[in-house]
Design a protein around this nucleic acid. Structure first.
Lengths: 237, 237
DNA sequence: GAGTGGTCTAGACCACTTC
DNA sequence: AAGTGGTCTAGACCACTCT
């Protein structure tokens, strides 16, 4: 017995999370007040508060005293701040400039199928772009976007600097976490011209799996990165 | 006015943090109960609870229902789990085996002085070791330990696999966070034999600054890492 | 059974925003 | 002034551990 005890606040948390996943409330929306939610769900205001604050720590909600509780929005700034890890030697934040090289529809290869949980033969869009920091070309990025998740994304004219804002606004996909896997490799000859480096030069390869609010991996990217002037920086807590 | 409003729980938090920093309570110690602390500090039990739970999220305390609240200990497992980011391609955790190559007292160079906030001429211990994953030599690590922080650390006979447990037990230093800076480089010739790789082979260079509970940077390390079989993996939230 | 932390409630008051 | 979230308290009860 007692296998499935769930505190009330956890049940409230689950209801709220579900509504966010379903899009019942959308990014930027104002949620009902603590008392209104408490009435609706039949619990006390303090219990609702505990669930709401948990969602704030997970970046899903944003609370402002006197104004209310809002569904968190992925702005350019907040996305780059959380997920873009490149820094100057001094540690200063950097904003990348991005140029699209190409994109094309393809069938997902086995590796992509497995990483993104796609069926055999699933179609993806492969986006290739270079990103510069302080006018120095630093990253060559290959982004894999399943068309089942992002229909017709290859038809979008103006891609924003941070794709995550597009994912949220156009597709209702809210990226809540990313898993980065880093290796050092010799720069393949065919990529050399994009990065202004000689072939065989050591580069940092960053493979990223981006996770949606519902826990699914929805985007996979591989970046070849020059670390001559900038570094990938992460704080472990 | 109103520049310095501090909630009660924050003041309680500050008192508790200070005691932890001073070593008034040591790792593994049992803290007084919520009610005892509340009485002592003249606040209610709920306010103490809020401060205690904050410290739990920061890994400084550990609470166990029915038993009490303890000062967190850096076990081999917890340290490696939080701060050792190497994984198999599959994503499985790995436990390193470690062999000391050498160590020697030196004067800190300018870079080390600056990173560790040391005065000119400060003495450090430089520890060199290799670490293996699944019997494959993977990391060559240079650890810089200021002797002002770790007196006579070069005289310690048996170094543990995770230095952080030694820092805590012998020196009262509790590492609460680390800042990693990653680059790709060509393997210097003089390191080649240690890593079983040819000179000029691309390696991942990880520079780490380890931060004590009081916010000071107390250790600086540089690791040259083969990424042939394993990767540095990090989850961004 | 006694002592601990964990949950839940109800109510009071404070701080901030908006009208 | 009204409405929101933020803090603080007091008390009840539950879940777990130890003796």
């Amino acid at each position: 017995m007692s296998t499935s005890f769930q505190p009330l606040y956890k049940q409230v948390y689950d209801v709220l999370t579900q509504r966010l996943q379903e899009g019942y409330w959308k990014p930027g929306d104002l949620l009902p007040s603590e008392f209104a939610l408490a009435d609706e769900l039949g619990v006390s205001q303090g219990t609702v508060r505990k669930a709401l604050n948990q969602l704030v720590t997970e970046y899903l909600l944003d609370r402002q005293q006197g104004k209310g509780t809002f569904v968190a929005e992925h702005t350019q700034e907040s996305s780059l701040f959380r997920f873009f890890r490149w820094r100057e030697p001094g540690g200063e934040k950097l904003i990348p400039e991005t140029t699209v090289i190409s994109q094309s529809r393809k069938s997902a290869n086995v590796d992509q199928q497995q990483k993104l949980g796609l069926p055999a033969g699933a179609e993806i869009n492969e986006l290739v772009r270079v990103r510069s920091l302080l006018d120095q070309i630093t990253l060559l990025e290959f982004v894999v976007q399943p068309l089942s998740v992002f229909p017709d994304i290859d038809l979008v004219k103006e891609l924003p600097n941070s794709l995550y804002t597009l994912y949220q606004e156009r597709y209702g996909i809210s990226i809540i976490s990313a898993r980065d896997e880093l290796r050092a490799e010799a720069l393949p000859k065919k990529f050399a011209k994009h990065l202004n480096l000689p072939p065989q030069h050591p580069v940092l390869v960053v493979e990223r799996l981006s996770i949606n609010i519902d826990g699914r991996a929805v985007e996979y990217s591989t970046a070849y990165c020059s670390t001559e002037s900038f570094s990938y920086v992460v704080n472990l807590k």
